[in-house]
Simulated scan of single mutants.
Amino acid sequence: MRKEDCFFLGKIAKKFSFKGEVLIWLDTDEPGLYKNLESVFVEVNKHLVPFFITSSSLHKNDFLRVRFEDVDTEEDADALVGKELYLPLSALPKLEGNRFYFHEVIGFTAEDQRLGDIGTIQSINDSTAQPLFEIKKGDTEILVPMIDDFIVKVDRENKKIILNTPEGLVDLYLG
């Protein structure tokens, strides 16, 4: 499995018991969706290695308490602490309406209700307090905050996001 075909699920935060159990921090708003996993990919030396889960349960709402097959001791668990976990993109729950995964809208056309086609979404910058659409129009890069009020519609069928940006925000880049 290649990392490009997967999404980051979380990290093994710490050992939980003397029998090799670990606590996994999940990078999600809905940890409950992942409590019945059969397996995950753990990044070990830049390779994704499948680990099979023999038992798991939610722990304090944001952690998953997991016992992996063949991880039976504290030492085995210790070796996994800090490792990142991935799942295939196909395992993502389908989102509908105006909810979307960042990777899903790359390549979509950004269309402003007032200005029409303002370019193609190249990436999402989520290293800022407010994630930004990075939109390319010719040689111009346009940054639009990902604010619910700006997103009118996610049109998956036509690979388009319809935006309603305040006057001046996009005009600034195109002027």
Results as ranks from 00 to 15, higher is better:
143 L>G: 10
80 L>G: 12
14 K>T: 12
159 K>G: 01
41 F>W: 11
56 S>G: 08
102 F>L: 02
124 I>M: 09
58 L>M: 14
143 L>I: 13
70 D>H: 13
28 T>H: 06
28 T>I: 06
126 D>R: 01
21 E>W: 05
139 D>I: 14
73 T>K: 09
151 I>V: 14
101 Y>P: 06
112 D>K: 04
39 S>Y: 04
134 E>F: 04
140 T>L: 06
7 F>D: 06
33 L>S: 05
29 D>K: 12
172 L>M: 12
9 L>K: 03
112 D>P: 02
151 I>H: 05
51 F>T: 14
10 G>F: 02
60 K>F: 08
87 L>I: 13
152 V>T: 12
114 R>F: 14
41 F>R: 11
171 D>L: 05
139 D>S: 14
5 D>F: 05
167 E>I: 13
72 D>K: 14
71 V>L: 11
88 P>N: 07
82 G>D: 01
10 G>K: 05
59 H>D: 09
155 D>R: 01
115 L>D: 02
6 C>Y: 10
128 T>P: 02
7 F>I: 15
69 E>R: 07
152 V>K: 10
11 K>A: 11
124 I>N: 12
64 L>M: 12
161 I>E: 02
12 I>W: 00
140 T>Q: 10
139 D>Y: 10
152 V>F: 07
133 F>R: 10
13 A>V: 06
143 L>C: 10
98 N>L: 13
59 H>Y: 14
138 G>T: 03
131 P>T: 14
74 E>L: 12
125 N>I: 11
156 R>C: 00
83 K>A: 13
137 K>Q: 13
71 V>H: 09
149 D>Q: 05
170 V>E: 03
95 L>T: 05
150 F>C: 06
131 P>R: 12
